[in-house]
Amino acid sequence: MAIEIKIALVQSPLHWEDPEANRAMFDKKIAAIDDDVDLIVLPEMFTTGFTMKPQNIPASEEKKTVEWMRRKAIEKDAAIVGSIAYKEDNDCYNRLFFVAPHAHISQYDKRHTFTLAGEDKVYKRGDEQLVETYKGFRLMLLICYDLRFPVWARNTFDYDVLLYVANWPKPRVAAWDALLKARAIENMAYCIGVNRVGRDGLGHEYSGHSAVYDVLGHKIVYSESEEVLYAVLSKEHIVSNREKLRFLDDRDRFTLTP
C-alpha cells in the first residue's frame, strides 16, 4: 500500500493582536477543510500576527490556543501546526506547536529570531531542532526566518518533509520563493512553506506565495490568494528519487553546537 499524506495549507490574513478573533476565523476555515486531510498548517503567530509586543496579549490566551489546537485536531482527525507568541516564566518565545489528533503535542522554539524587526530583543531563541514522525513521514518543523539558514535545516536527520510557517513580507518574497525551492533540492525532501496574506497592524503587506515543492524542486501547489491549498505527499517519490540519484550520500556530515 502506498504511503501518502494529504496536507492543507491555510493561507490567510490575520487579526492584529486578537487571538479570539483569529481562533474564530480559523474555526470556520478548518471546518471547511476536506475530511481526508492528515495535516493542517497555519501561519507563523497565527493568533496575533508578527507582533513585537507580546505584553499586549493576556497570558491566558496561550493555553486557550493550545487547547483550541487540540480540539481542532480531534475534530478533524488531523494534526495541526502553527506558531504563537508564548510566554514562559520571564521569557517569551515564538513557539511552534505540532498537535496530533490523539493528544500528542510537541513544540519548537524559533532558532533564528528576526533582528531586522527586533525579534531578538523580545523573544528568546530556541536551541533544539524538532523532527516529528507522523503517518509514516518524518517532518522537520521550522519558522520563517529559519529559512535563510540552510545549516540549521540540513538533512542530517533523514527527514522526509521540511515545513516552514511564516509571516514573510511582500518586499522580500522573491527570496522566500527561491529559498523554499533550494531547501527542497539540497535536502531531497518535500519543502512546504505556509505564509499569510494581507496587512498587519504595522502596515506591512504580505502576499502569500505559500507553496509545496517536491524533492527535485518541482512546484506542486502555489498561491497568492486567501485560500486553503491541498497537496498529497508520496513516500515513494522520496524513496525512489533518493535511491536513483543518491545525492544525500555525498552530503557533508557535521554536528551543531547551541
Score class of each variant (00 low, 15 high):
28 K>Y: 11
31 A>L: 07
32 A>D: 11
34 D>Q: 14
36 D>L: 00
37 V>S: 08
37 V>R: 05
39 L>A: 14
40 I>F: 01
41 V>Q: 11
41 V>A: 09
42 L>F: 09
42 L>V: 12
46 F>Y: 09
46 F>I: 03
51 T>W: 08
52 M>D: 05
52 M>E: 03
52 M>S: 11
54 P>Y: 11
54 P>A: 09
55 Q>N: 07
56 N>P: 00
57 I>T: 07
58 P>F: 15
58 P>E: 14
60 S>T: 14
61 E>A: 14
62 E>C: 09
63 K>S: 09
66 V>Y: 08
68 W>E: 00
68 W>H: 01
69 M>K: 03
71 R>C: 13
72 K>H: 10
72 K>T: 07
75 E>Y: 06
75 E>I: 06
76 K>Q: 11
76 K>G: 04
77 D>I: 01
78 A>Q: 13
79 A>C: 01
79 A>V: 01
84 I>L: 13
85 A>S: 15
86 Y>A: 13
86 Y>W: 09
87 K>Y: 00
88 E>R: 12
89 D>C: 11
89 D>K: 13
90 N>Y: 12
91 D>G: 08
91 D>L: 15
93 Y>P: 12
94 N>T: 14
95 R>D: 04
96 L>T: 12
98 F>Q: 04
99 V>P: 08
99 V>A: 11
101 P>G: 03
103 A>M: 14
103 A>W: 15
103 A>E: 11
106 S>C: 07
107 Q>F: 14
108 Y>N: 03
110 K>I: 00
111 R>G: 01
113 T>Q: 05
114 F>K: 10
115 T>P: 00
115 T>R: 05
115 T>V: 05
117 A>C: 12
118 G>V: 09
118 G>Q: 05
118 G>F: 06
119 E>G: 00
120 D>F: 00
120 D>I: 00
123 Y>V: 07
123 Y>K: 12
124 K>I: 02
125 R>K: 14
126 G>L: 09
129 Q>T: 01
129 Q>I: 04
